[in-house]
């Protein structure tokens, strides 16, 4: 019998495939390694990211679900809560006790009750409502707050780019 982390990831994968949430597709990149997933997230409707399909990569630790996975967008992103290299900075991906920004509530942090699905849904809502207190991308945070027009413009350019359209 496989290890507990692998069994849980297989269970989550099965669950995600049987009842896929709206606008989210996720699963292992290769069937012989369940600890690296690819995810495709559709930009939430009614936001500047609407219409985009954003690819991301999730890497799970060997002790999953005791520790959270790491998530990284593999396309260009411009968002207050996403680092320039694509890493996602939201509280659900941080274990209590490690708080890079020092503002997150422990109740929102990682715990085994969370899952890949919840992470991805949190990312969708993060796309819809950026948290400009987090300093993952300071430029994006400032632009989101002070110059929404410009921010939307960049977001739409990224959306077109993820679709392979000329910008």
């Amino acid at each position: 019998m496989a290890g507990s982390a692998l069994r849980r990831l297989m269970a989550e994968y099965r669950q995600l495939t049987l009842n896929p949430p709206e606008g989210i597709v996720a699963g292992p990149i290769s069937e012989d390694n369940f600890f690296e997933w690819e995810a495709l997230i559709a930009g939430p409707e009614g936001t500047c990211f609407e219409g985009g399909v954003f690819p991301a990569k999730l890497v799970f630790p060997p002790d999953y679900p005791l520790s959270p996975p790491k998530m990284k967008f593999t396309c260009e992103m411009f968002h207050p809560n996403i680092f320039a290299d694509g890493r996602v900075c939201i509280s659900i991906l941080h274990a209590p006790g490690d708080d890079p920004m020092g503002y997150e509530l422990s109740a929102e942090r990682w715990s085994p009750v969370q899952s890949v699905e919840k992470i991805l849904l949190s990312v969708v809502s993060m796309l819809a409502e950026p948290n400009d207190e987090s300093g993952a991308n300071v430029d994006a945070a400032i632009m989101w707050r002070d110059n929404r027009e410009e921010f939307n413009k960049i977001a739409r350019r990224i959306v077109r780019k993820t679709l392979g359209l000329p910008s």
Binding site: T17, G23, V25, G27, E31, L40, A42, G51, V53, L163
Partner: peptide, 24 residues
């Protein structure tokens, strides 16, 4: 498993296509 993966890619393809048409 491979069936599921195939379905997943298919779904993404569909999603991608529909999005493309709407953006165009």
């Amino acid at each position: 498993l491979s069936e599921i993966r195939r379905r997943r890619l298919q779904k993404f393809q569909q999603q991608n296509d529909s999005v493309k048409t709407t953006t165009n």
